[in-house]
Design a protein around this nucleic acid. Sequence first.
DNA 1: AATGAATGAGATTTCATTCAT
DNA 2: GATGAATGAAATCTCATTCAT
Lengths: 206, 206, 206, 206
Amino acid sequence: MATQKINMRQEQAYETRKKLLESARKLFAENGYAGTQVRTINRSIDMADGLIYHYFPGGKKELLQVLIQENFQQIITEVKSRNEQIGNLPIAEVLEQIYRNADEVFTEYLDVFKIFFRENEVRELIEVDQLMMFIDGRRKWFPEFLRERANAGEIRVMDYESAAVTLSAIMMNHFLVKITGLGAGCLSDQEHRFKLIDYQVKLWKP
Amino acid sequence: MATQKINMRQEQAYETRKKLLESARKLFAENGYAGTQVRTINRSIDMADGLIYHYFPGGKKELLQVLIQENFQQIITEVKSRNEQIGNLPIAEVLEQIYRNADEVFTEYLDVFKIFFRENEVRELIEVDQLMMFIDGRRKWFPEFLRERANAGEIRVMDYESAAVTLSAIMMNHFLVKITGLGAGCLSDQEHRFKLIDYQVKLWKP
Amino acid sequence: MATQKINMRQEQAYETRKKLLESARKLFAENGYAGTQVRTINRSIDMADGLIYHYFPGGKKELLQVLIQENFQQIITEVKSRNEQIGNLPIAEVLEQIYRNADEVFTEYLDVFKIFFRENEVRELIEVDQLMMFIDGRRKWFPEFLRERANAGEIRVMDYESAAVTLSAIMMNHFLVKITGLGAGCLSDQEHRFKLIDYQVKLWKP
Amino acid sequence: MATQKINMRQEQAYETRKKLLESARKLFAENGYAGTQVRTINRSIDMADGLIYHYFPGGKKELLQVLIQENFQQIITEVKSRNEQIGNLPIAEVLEQIYRNADEVFTEYLDVFKIFFRENEVRELIEVDQLMMFIDGRRKWFPEFLRERANAGEIRVMDYESAAVTLSAIMMNHFLVKITGLGAGCLSDQEHRFKLIDYQVKLWKP
DNA sequence: AATGAATGAGATTTCATTCAT
DNA sequence: GATGAATGAAATCTCATTCAT
């Protein structure tokens, strides 16, 4: 009984903390860190002004820090788990999976990416090593993957590095468009995505 | 004599105004509009605190507005003049010109682009119509250009829209990398640029 | 059985109350009343934040009040009991007793004296009348005591008031040094104390 | 003309800074550092709330620090200059000068001493070395002075160290009484002072 | 008795802007 | 044109206290 009561309270506290982080994420993404008042965050979840210092004694600064770090961990985990699922499919379907994964992760964590993109100081908050190792892994993986497929005769022999850069650029472009809100992004709509993949795979045919 | 003095004054005033705009551009790009104090701008050019209101009676807000509008006009003019120079060259050289133009303009106005992409309010300051018409013109031009070359037998028949998207993505990716400072960008180094163009043109060969 | 439980509870409650008062005494003495947070007191004895209002419904203010009043009563009692023990000893031994009593009481209640001298409001909390009557009694007693000894030929005839002021000053000086922590105080070390008494008694010799 | 204008402004700024320091000194002495609101200081000299951060960017903390350091320097200077004036007078007049000097300096800087006495952290703000060297110099000087006078036959041979301690205690007692406001202090009134000196000198007679 | 999340009044601090010189 | 002291509204932050569990 008493344990249950305590758990209820703990759960409620956890909820409040979560609401705080989520609302801050939304507002920081929309108006920037400096452009978001602590008061606005508090009002957005009907919370008393002082409570934020109960959960984040360092105030707005700590809120941002925790927000970035926790979300960053989630993104890494999410991306890793998605990458494991890319198997021995035909090249067009591999591209489809890569593009869809990218679009889905971008969309899910759009606000975090917006913050990451806008706030210079944020980049000092995360373990850049971890990010770099991760990105580097991906950069090396794709050219190697293409070489194997070329060896198998599925695609032609070409400059696999440049092909990887091109692919990555398409994802980054998609990302930029979504972040700035200047369009829908070329990968969100299935038809567009198919068209792009079809164009690419045709060019790659042996 | 008196006229000369007045001219000196005018020139000095013009210089101060220019320094103000340039320093503000740098600081807004680095720390964001809300994250930059007027005092920091003043200190950066060793100017007294009150003087900014002499040059920009509307204060910080007007400084941003003027900064964006003047730079935006310059960018439009610059890009237009560069585009006129793309003539009847072989496809590889056309790509080279497009990429180099993009890189040079991005690099020159990097800070302005940073501000433009960070601050939501900024987009209300410029005549978005003008920007959109301009971008739209480019978007329609490139597929049409490719079709003509294909008809001339220089490249193969393909999905010209997707090719344009890919090209644009490479430029946007370059831009994103430069803006975030997370790398050098794939178009700034001549060798990398050549490699990418070579890869592309080879794929496009009939 | 039930009674025993209640007794246990009462005892524990008494212990908590005592710990609260003792920790508050230490912290108020160190950082002042305004400079001590209620939260700091609670943390210092690992107590939940709300509980202090169970023991002291008037909060921080009441804690100070009770603290001062209880300690003040103890001090008065302690000093009275010590004074009764000053009997018909030789003058040097009387001084020794007076000095040692002063040192011991100062040391034991140092924190309380620190609070008493720092906080202006504190003086309104205790029955100043009681304090004044007590001090006044001492002030009149010592010159009278000296006169008797002079009449008995133990010391010479002199200005007994000034002698009392001097003696009191030595105690106050000792107190001041201990309160500020700027030294050990001239009465705490037996050798120093003896030297001072010896100097005094020699000057007083008939 | 322009220089005069600038001087006027500088002088006025200096005045504001001075008023700020003086009012803070008074209020800190009266209500303690933690017990004094910044707002109260500002109101006391009819100053806008923000201005304090113009003069003392570190706020209340820096105000205290500067306040203590500047006053401490003044006290050292003042005391040194007064000590130089103690010449070859009869012993009673030397005591009179020492006591009067002490009383006058205590009275002039009473508020600073109150702050120094109350706030533990203040003692870390001043160069304790300097204070200690100064006090140490005084401690050694007085016994030596007494020895010389004893050699000259003006006073008897005795424990000069204890005599110095007694004298110092009388001044410290005076100081404590003034600081706590619990009385007038035994050295402020000429008659009392004379009585004390007379008592002392008579005891010291050879 | 005990807990610690929640409250909110009030404190400190920031910073764009004004204005006398 | 130039200065920087002064202003004060609005922001951030503190902390004694309340209250549901």
